[in-house]
């Protein structure tokens, strides 16, 4: 049984195409991640699925309801957390929560069980105005408000953007617990490293889905050999590798460079670098990361941001 079914959705604003022929399904009870940078079309897709925006063509359904015909039914069963912080900054934590509870004809008490884990972290600040909370706390409050009516599906549009790595990790731990309670979660993020927390992911760029799979599935499909390389002068290493003509791609990756060689082997590379005066050279073949896959797909879809 699928919670979300999207078939061939297109959406344009004036002459820019925001979404081109998007199709995917989200199974009941899974965490599905939409991964891509700002401007990829994630928010547009979320707004179409949450019945806030009309698509140009294609069809989309949430829990069997059509996003246009049955919008009222959908609005009753979804929890939505928009990308921008969308709570009342001048109201306190408690007041925000109570307000959203009444909007859905329910009370905080009746749903306390579901939000308890998250709310206990907010409780010390319950009289503080939402606008004065730190980034991580704001996200937790927004999640509480989206959960207050026990939705069947959660739509979380970039919940972790601008949030520090520790708060992000905590946020994802919460999502895992919600999943265990049977809630389907569609979440978008520009942070590629969050992919491993999703059951399945879609990589989205420039309004198109480049690939949909489990994380392992996507990584297995990486078509080339990938090497991590480092030396004592990384800046020079980067420019030397780009000039040498032996590599297809060279990208900086934390303390290493990731490169895909043109030929199947990169045996000559170490000698070449020594010749160039590099010291402390380390080369090893590695498994691709989501980010490697994303960049590889980007180049094949011809949709890098430069030309």
């Amino acid at each position: 049984m699928n919670s979300i079914e999207v078939k061939n959705i297109c959406k344009s604003y004036k002459d820019t195409k925001a979404l081109e022929d998007i199709s995917f399904e989200v199974k009941k009870g899974e965490i599905f991640g939409l991964i891509g940078p700002d401007g990829a079309g994630k928010t547009t897709l979320f707004r179409i699925l949450t019945t806030l925006l009309l698509k140009d063509s294609g069809s989309a359904g949430v829990e069997g309801f059509d996003v246009e015909k049955d919008y009222k039914a959908i609005r009753r069963i979804i929890g939505y957390m928009p990308g921008r912080f969308s709570l009342y900054q001048d109201l306190s934590v408690e007041e925000n929560l109570n307000f959203f509870a009444t909007v859905f004809d329910t009370t905080v008490k009746a749903n306390y069980e579901l939000i308890k884990d998250i709310y206990v972290q907010l409780e010390p600040f319950k009289t503080r105005r939402a606008g004065k909370l730190s980034g991580g706390m704001k996200q937790k409050l927004a999640l509480c408000c989206a959960l207050i009516h026990q939705p069947e599906i959660l739509f979380l549009d970039e919940p972790t953007t601008g949030v520090d790595p520790v708060s992000r990790k905590e946020f994802w731990e919460m999502l895992k617990k919600l999943k265990d309670k049977g809630i389907t979660i569609l979440v978008s993020t520009p942070y590629m490293d969050e992919a491993f927390l999703c059951d399945r992911i879609a990589l989205i760029q420039s309004g198109r889905i480049m690939d949909i799979n489990t994380l392992e599935g996507i990584i297995l499909k990486f078509p080339k050999k990938l090497y991590a390389i480092k030396s004592d002068n990384m800046y020079k290493l980067n420019s030397d590798l780009k000039e040498c003509g032996m590599c297809d791609t060279v990208y900086i990756f934390g303390e290493y460079l990731h490169l895909t060689p043109k030929s199947s082997e990169c045996s000559g590379l170490e000698d070449y670098l020594s010749e160039k005066g590099h010291t402390g050279i380390e080369i090893s073949q590695i498994k691709a990361t989501v980010e490697d896959c994303f960049m590889d797909l980007m180049s094949r879809h011809g949709s890098t941001n430069n030309e």
Partner: peptide
């Protein structure tokens, strides 16, 4: 402020 977005997506 974007709060209407949440209200609209509610019943």
């Amino acid at each position: 402020l974007g709060t209407l977005e949440v209200l609209l997506a509610s019943p």
